[in-house]
Design a protein around this nucleic acid. Structure first.
Lengths: 197, 197
DNA sequence: TAAATACGCTACGCAGCGTTACTTAATTAC
DNA sequence: GTAATTAAGTAACGCTGCGTAGCGTATTTA
């Protein structure tokens, strides 16, 4: 009988509880007070771990922020799938906006801010958060085109940036609402375009 | 003969040269190294003024950043005006993207980051930078609608956020280009919308 | 000349960064 | 068992930047 042999290097193994406590403390602090509250020292204190332990595993606060966010925030990258691509698009954008209205919005805005002074944070956010959503959006667009709902030849970058960019801009600047109704209207505008028919 | 009497309070007047030197140093530092380089101490050193003088006039670094940006960056809020509103829109978006590709992009992204931890910075940016552009965009849309180029009933918030949000997102995440061609395509997508005709 | 205000200099206490040296704990290899 | 190895915790450090205070000097009005 063959059993999979766990091959472990010698030495004390990493403590998963500690890791989780750190990630959770980081997430909570980001959620509660944004970048101001999110300091390595605060994370260490809240998690009950040592600052040195944190620095052993994460090179900087951006890396910790991203990892806690990606691991603890719920991931809505899977779009719903009904017969109408248009309806699915609206559902998804509403869902995203709902997350942004809540605590996730605070975290996302903090990460975007951090990403402006740390390239690794930026690319980690793009790869771990934005890209999965772009992929799902691509599938939705393809489906919409195949079903004749959307016109052919749509550029994913443009559509994605128009939709996600609008919503994220509202999180960053708070100059316009993110209510379901506002999102529906925004999607409608994007669907219809500006041109007179 | 009436002459306007300059009414001055007693005491040494504020030194305009010092003020300008501070604003210029702040702008240069933002431009060169973003938020990392932009510290009050660095501004003081480069401007040849004292830290205490800076704190006398600006409550925090966000206020200084915004003021230097709004005073020293060229303001393209006035849109060009030909007979085609569509062409003007493209011209304007290209112009904006060109600024974002250059040093202005670094500054804008820094200010957006700073705005995430400072509400005053956020509202100052919205009022001093975003709103003038929204107003100009509104006029352009109105003109386009009147000329039959754009459909009626367009919501300014939606159009502005789709266009500016797309470009700003690309500055923040650098996941897609900001070239003239890319911008043209993005505007085209926004103009046409997603729907099949 | 007095009062008021601005500017510069030096210095301070504070917070957070990222690191070091050291001790203790947990695990594998022999 | 014992040695080797790796992790976690503790305490302390030097550094940078923040925002403030005290004081002397400069420039203006009354």
């Amino acid at each position: 009988m063959h059993t999979v042999v766990e091959h472990r290097s010698p030495g004390r193994p990493r403590c998963e509880e500690t890791r989780n406590a750190i990630l959770r403390a980081a997430y909570e602090l980001l959620e509660e007070g944004g970048l101001d509250a999110f300091t390595i020292e605060a994370v260490a204190e809240r998690s009950g771990s040592a600052k040195t332990t944190i620095y052993r595993w994460w090179p900087n606060r951006g890396a910790l922020a991203i990892e806690s966010f990606l691991e603890l925030s719920e991931k809505y990258a899977q779009f719903s799938q009904t017969e109408s691509a248009t309806a699915d698009l609206k559902t998804q954008m509403r869902r995203f906006a709902r997350a942004l209205r809540g605590r996730i919005g605070q975290i996302v805005s903090s990460i975007l801010a951090e990403a402006q002074t740390c390239a690794e944070t930026r690319s980690a956010f793009v790869e771990g958060y934005i890209n999965p959503r772009r992929t799902a959006l691509q599938q939705l667009i393809d489906r919409g085109v195949a079903q004749g709902e959307f016109r052919a030849g749509l550029a994913l970058n443009d559509v994605g940036d128009a939709l996600y960019g609008s919503l994220l801009l509202r999180v960053l600047l708070r100059h316009a609402p993110l209510s379901d109704a506002a999102v529906d209207q925004l999607v409608d505008t994007t669907l219809q375009g500006l041109r007179a028919r």
